[in-house]
């Protein structure tokens, strides 16, 4: 079976000079949790935006389940951006109904259960919630979908250890078993135990794609230590 995501010779340039991705070729297998790692400016976010159809590539192609990013891939990709996209004036209930209306794979009962566990009222308006709670609400919405691909951009950046544990637990317990989870992060230590594979990116290209247990077994190193070694200057 071919990979869930096939990327061929993908190039994206901003403003003529700045090249964000250069001739990237990459396959994401099915049923894996994959870490997308690399220093700032390595092209992680550009790749994620391209996968979600928020940017259009200059050349090359992306196939998700055999299709280019568009309405039908968006129906099976669940995306957690780095920023909160929740409308300030909306209530939780309105958001749930919005997700339920648009995403066929959205499981409202699951979302409600998780919201109840955090004691978040469905009548609450987003504006009244703290930043941390908003982030959790967004994660709950994203993880309540039975998607084929989850793309999580820096899900644990800037959160305290308790929130981090909550986020990782939520990801593990809720992702669809046959789905692939792509997590971009710079906090490798916090997340490496839940990964199957890692992708190291550098200057808009793929540096390395390997299984994490392989790194531990063959190099006797943690992914974090190995990352430091690879990117040492």
């Amino acid at each position: 079976m071919s990979g869930l995501v096939e990327i061929h010779n993908l190039t994206k340039t901003y403003d003529k000079k700045k090249e964000a991705l250069h001739d990237l070729t990459l396959t994401l297998p099915r049923g894996k949790i994959i870490g997308l790692l690399g220093p700032n400016g390595s092209g992680k976010t550009t790749l994620i935006k391209l996968l979600n159809g928020l940017l259009v590539p200059d050349s090359g192609e992306i196939l998700i389940d055999g299709e280019k990013p568009g309405p039908s891939t968006k129906a099976k990709v669940s995306y957690l951006p780095e920023r909160t996209y929740l409308k300030n004036g909306a209530t939780i209930r309105e958001l749930l109904s919005c997700f339920q209306d648009f995403y066929e794979d959205f499981r409202a009962d699951r979302a409600k259960e998780m919201l109840a566990a955090l004691q978040i009222e469905e009548n609450a308006r987003i504006r009244t919630l703290s930043k941390g709670t908003r982030e959790k609400v967004q994660l709950i919405l994203v993880m309540s979908r039975d998607a084929s691909l989850y793309i999580l951009d820096e899900p644990i950046a800037g959160v305290d250890p308790a929130a981090r544990d909550y986020i990782l637990r939520t990801i593990i317990t809720n992702y669809n078993e046959n789905a692939t989870v792509l997590i971009s992060t710079h906090l490798i230590t916090d997340i490496e135990n839940i990964l199957d594979e890692v992708i190291f990116m550098k200057e808009g290209n793929l540096l390395l794609q390997t299984s994490v247990e392989e790194i531990r077994e063959e190099k006797g190193k943690s992914v974090d230590a190995y990352f430091r070694e690879v990117f040492a200057c």
């Binding site: 049923g31 949790i33 637990r169 593990i172 078993e177 135990n193 839940i194 990964l195």
Partner: peptide
Amino acid sequence: VRELAAQAGVNPNT
């Protein structure tokens, strides 16, 4: 598996 993986904070496949 899912529950244990979540408890341990490890990959479910592992």
